[in-house]
Design a protein around this nucleic acid. Structure first.
Lengths: 234, 234
DNA sequence: ACAAAAGTGTTACGTCTACACCCATGA
DNA sequence: TCATGGGTGTAGACGTAACACTTTTGT
């Protein structure tokens, strides 16, 4: 009987491998995405995710971190892979596949001048303009993943400054879930998780009375994760 | 101010892009994985996932379906992308990144002779031998995803024959979740979803009394999905 | 004194869990 | 008749959802 052997060492042809980043941030009560304006032809001037080719001696993840650092000045950012986009015709130039990562950044941390120098802009998540190639699809998939993930991991903390108030956190979840939450139930649920540390400071930027600031308790969170708890926040 | 422009059209270097498949099946009350024995050097004789290079004129997904069809004879299989594995040193030969897909197949449908002719074997999920390269990691990640996914989509139906009994379905979920479920509660929950159609036939292969066979109701399932229901089956 | 956001408790409801017995059948 | 797996109901625990008023403080 004939054997169709799939031989790894008589490979066909090479292609370009790129990485693109969905960079999410949270500011002014809105979820935002960082996109940039292409400065090269073709499609110069169109909006696009931030990306780069992956070098031969570089992990794909490394490449994504490099891009992120180049554009925002940030390192040690929460980043996760969304997936590979590999349609044969996705790029009209060369055959290129793209590994998309999504990153969550504290919007006050990044280097504004650096970002501007790259022609990058923050858009409200509902006002992102049409993007180049299959980047619209990447965004849609990324949002879906973010929303699903927020249900079982308290991922939102990555988007807030180190000190934050409960109303801020609630607003963030409302934006992610796209629905309003009951303040009493939200507060009750969050506090019952024991992953918030109340501080003795208040943030008065949003009200006369001011709201207490909290920090995220990474230690308790790790324990909770181990115990198999899941974080559904409706 | 100097501008670090990331230019998509002065790309660095190309690399190989491969696709590997995690092929899951369910038989004899056990979740199984199809792996194959490499027939080429290096690492000839070692166990490996089934894979292939992606051709230049081929979608990544297409490539995975091609491999699956070559090995099992099956088309129209449930398949989803797990992610890209892109560490620089993952393959000791050439720089290659791999896009991993996982597939769920009805274990009685596949072409046994074809599978054997490729040196492929089914292993109990708990008895899979060590795999080549980073394939162990792929398997671990795939199992995690399968387990998570089974919580919010009735994914298990893909692994059973078209007609199945409730005890069979329960067994499958027990294997996926790695814990025993209460038969009464399981049955109650499943039936309440209204996605099972009871048939007038019984399967007597497991008991004298026999268990009623059911079909999956795709139409109702689609409606349920739209209504935002989620399928947690504990 | 008033506007505006922060903070607090209780009750009703539905869902999940735990649990024990009868049924149908072939050998 | 008996051994084996299939099939059924109920009560208590638990978590979620709904709901309105008081507090603080800068202007």
């Amino acid at each position: 009987m004939p054997e169709t052997i799939i031989d790894f060492y008589q490979p066909s042809e090479k292609m370009y491998v790129a990485t693109d980043c969905l960079i999410f941030g949270f500011d002014e009560g809105q979820l935002k995405l960082l996109v940039f304006k292409r400065r090269v032809e073709p499609r110069k001037g169109e909006w696009s995710l931030i990306g780069s080719f992956v070098n031969l001696d570089e992990d794909v993840e490394e490449a994504a971190k490099r891009v992120l650092a180049e554009i925002t000045g940030l390192e040690n950012v929460y980043m996760e892979q969304l997936g590979a986009y590999g349609a044969a015709e996705r790029d009209p130039g060369y055959r290129t596949i793209s590994i998309v990562q999504y990153a969550l950044i504290r919007i006050n941390d990044y280097d504004k001048k650096l970002v501007e120098s790259h022609g990058a802009h923050w858009f409200d998540i509902n006002e992102v303009p049409g993007l180049v190639l299959d980047h619209d699809k990447m965004l849609a998939d990324g949002l879906e993943k973010l929303r699903r993930k927020a249900r079982y991991q308290p991922i939102g903390f990555e988007l807030l400054p180190e000190k934050f108030t409960i109303p801020q956190l609630q607003k963030l979840y409302e934006v992610i879930y796209q629905k309003e939450l009951d303040g009493r139930n939200f507060r009750k649920k969050l506090l019952s998780l024991n992953v918030l540390i109340k501080l003795d400071e208040k943030d008065k930027s949003n009200s006369r009375r001011g709201a207490f600031l909290y920090k995220f308790d990474h230690k308790n969170y790790q324990q909770l994760l181990k115990s198999g708890y899941n974080f559904e926040i409706a």
